[in-house]
Design a protein around this nucleic acid. Sequence first.
RNA 1: UGGCCGAUAGUUCAGUUGGCAGAACGCCUGAUUUUGAUUCAGGAGGUCGCAGGUUCAAUCCCUGCUCGGCCAGCCA
Length: 560
Amino acid sequence: MSEDSTEHTPIDFIREKINSDNESGKYGNRVQTRFPPEPNGYLHIGHAKSICLNFGLADDYDGVCNLRFDDTNPETEDQDFVDGIIEDVRWLGYEPNEVVYASDYFEQLYQWAESLIERGLAYVDDQDAETISEQRGGFTTPGQNSPFRDRTADENMALFRGMRAGDFADGEKVLRAKIDMNHENMQMRDPVLYRIRREHHVRTGTDWIIFPTYDWAHGQSDAIEKVTHSICTLEFDTHRALYDWCLENLELPAEKPEQTEFARLNLTHTITSKRKLKALVEDGSVDGWDDPRMPTIRGMRRRGYPAASIRAFMDHIGVSKANSTHDIELLESFIRTELNKISLRRMAVLRPLKVVITNWPEGQSDMREAINNPEDDTAGTREVPFSGELWIEQDDFALDPPPKYYRLTIGREVRLRAGYFITANDVVTDDDGNVVEVHCTYDPETAGGQAPDGRKVKATIHWVSAATAVDATVHLYDRLFTDSHPGSGDTEPLSSLNPDSRETVQAKLEPALADIEPGQVVQFERLGYFAADIDDASVFHRTVGLRDEWANIQKRKQNG
RNA sequence: UGGCCGAUAGUUCAGUUGGCAGAACGCCUGAUUUUGAUUCAGGAGGUCGCAGGUUCAAUCCCUGCUCGGCCAGCCA
């Protein structure tokens, strides 16, 4: 990738911890991480940060990283999500050491729960959720002990086995850790370890009707897999004490893993709540989880974001404990940087305006040679058919040009990219006075785009020959949310949903674009990067536009 | 209200085991350019949240304060 650079990238607090663990020989120089999604939705850009971190750490330290499904709640989980998540992780460029499931450990977790009961560290509670919640107390008020807290180990054991065997209804009993109802950390006030739920589980089917909670499953799953560094987001920091409590009270197969928390990723104009993304899909605001406007990994893939750009972005923003919201423009700049290097250049006209070249020899056909990618000599050239009837962009002609307008206007000469110099002489208008056709003359001496007399033009515009144009549907995307921080304050994020987040146009493409591969991203010259749809290559999605100085000039004028 | 975490250019974030403060994005100049793109060169832009303390020296360590985030699911 990058040539060896002498500048060392600054080290983050997680790598610092790993380095010091390695120095002290804590895990015998072993580094093992895991990415642990719950399969209740598809992955989004926030997960991508965690993936890049966990797999990146494993790569950097010659360690391994598992993909582990945290499938401890049968209610919301689905096989489609499992398959989709595996696919998304691979697409991002990472190969899990192993794909594992918390549900693989249900029997071990159950045995460990029995061992807790034997030692008087857990009890069965008969109270309902509401009562337990009330007894938990508040931040400044102590909790109350459950009346069932002092059952004997034998009694608890019999009851817990009964829970597993199906003697009780859903919600009738739970298993709780016996810690401290006055603990200042609410997570430590006798948390629930097991609940009864007669629900079909994606992997275990109906084998189990009791399910461990996150807190009882997570640390132990880490320990079973011999994870060394268990990295999660900030909101789990209060769970760390419980994570440690569980592991310290069990016979572990390996050295105790340690949890470290980092700040999750937020982006402007974007939401990263699985629940809310699901709502967008379900109410039809978007076409699906893979709609190009979605911040999901599948959405970004369909949109044409290269996985390498996403990785480079994550590398750049680094990892810290400061809650942060990055500008979506920053991500887009990484997309442009990558695409500029690799994408083929093509010509496409999004909003066509007819140009007739009045001095073009009747019936003459012509092939122009165009460079495929000025950033990559090996990309070669292609032929583009030229004729006396062309499509140009409506924006590239102005009857009454604003100041600093370089493009085509009556009496002005411009260059057609890879073609000829043309001068506009006349227009045809419709009944409303709109220009529907521009009549030009071309200079045959300027074939290839240079004038032998050395005269210059200020603008070069793109074009497509009308006779051979390929029709295509092109989706132009704007931000999904108009608000830079959707849902900030007390606003409902969906209330700032942008009604104009997608504009669809019928475009005219040069013939080479008929052969594009599904999913391939090209640059439409002067417009931006566009991805052929994964399922239908005659449909294009605008991945991201080019930087646009002309738009800046106009904006500045508008703002005074 | 208790606990934990945070606060650094216009913006978003790094960083400093205490020694002249960094990046990207954005913005502005100029050069190159058959994309108003790219590339290159340069520029503007900071009381490092506030107040004390320790120190030869504090953005960094300590104390207090202010503001923001998270925590009282049988979700993860």
